[in-house]
Design a protein around this nucleic acid. Structure first.
Ligand SMILES: [Zn+2]
Ligand SMILES: [Zn+2]
Ligand SMILES: [Zn+2]
Ligand SMILES: [Zn+2]
Lengths: 143, 143
DNA sequence: TGCAAACCCTGTAGCTACTATAAGGTCAAG
DNA sequence: CTTGACCTTATAGTAGCTACAGGGTTTGCA
């Protein structure tokens, strides 16, 4: 199958497929006489593997490692697989925590302007300006 | 003051300050005879304003707009300020939701390997491989 | 046969918000 | 007069694509 059909079947754009090939995530496929890439079933599965991992937010470097375990002796322990997943869980978890703090801060700032104002009287702008001169702000210094 | 001192006082690297200048977020300061940037108090406040907004996750384009409201007639309504903050809140909120889903999916995948295994028997690798061939997976198809 | 649409190819640049060099000029202390 | 700490510009790198530009190929139809 050509790249366009692989794209259609996986829901991944042709350009992304070529990008994965350049990055060494997908093996270079055979070419037709005119230079078109020709993919077989294993490529489709490899790409599906990559996209599945991407949908879990895994970085490409980790996916490369995960895919590489298929080339390793099957009797090896799987602790490095676990470590990759655990790492990703903790990355995601700390991102959630940081974003939750951010949301609270933003809502405290937003609360400074509840009724329609002019720019001159806007509690949001005032808070931001005051904070820039070193004063306490609703978003960062709330108790 | 020179760029290094501004950097020290704000906790922002000199290179980032120059970057903000290139991006039009900080006005170009006066130069000494040898070409060194010389900053005054207003630059420090402007930079503090930017850094405060950045700490709330605001994109530079939005900060540019927020800062631009200072040049606008003060009698204008502040609804565009609110809109920027609301937009940021909803961006943050939807990121949180997406990451929370991700965390659950990752934990479901992780649960497939609870005791030490070999690569051949690893429930995580098996799940990923099966998903690549179209089968249901713990992470995406759990009820 | 001729032509147009729909494919495909490579290579390059753009996106965000920095960060990190390289290669050089300036200034104050000792 | 030299050392070290500053400063300058310009360029490239980061992650994961996405969007061209400028070309070649294949297929179908009149
Ligand atoms: Zn307001
Ligand atoms: Zn604040
Ligand atoms: Zn395992
Ligand atoms: Zn899954």
């Amino acid at each position: 199958m050509q790249i366009g059909e692989l794209a259609k079947r996986t829901g991944c754009e042709s350009e992304t497929i070529r990008y994965y090939e350049r990055e060494g995530l997908l093996p270079a496929p055979a070419r037709s006489s005119s230079g078109y890439r020709r993919y077989e079933q294993p490529h489709l599965e490899q790409l599906a593997f990559i996209l599945h991992c991407r949908s879990l937010g895994m970085p490409l470097a980790d996916i490369r490692l995960l895919a590489g375990f298929h080339q390793q002796p099957a009797a090896e322990p799987c602790d490095r697989v676990n470590a990759l997943i655990d790492q990703q869980i903790s990355r995601v978890h700390s991102q959630i925590e940081a974003l939750q703090k951010l949301e609270i801060q933003l809502q405290q700032l937003r609360a400074r302007c509840d009724s329609p104002h002019t720019l001159a009287d806007c509690g949001i702008l005032k808070t931001l300006d005051d904070a820039a001169t070193g004063e306490a702000c609703a978003c960062h210094d709330a108790s």
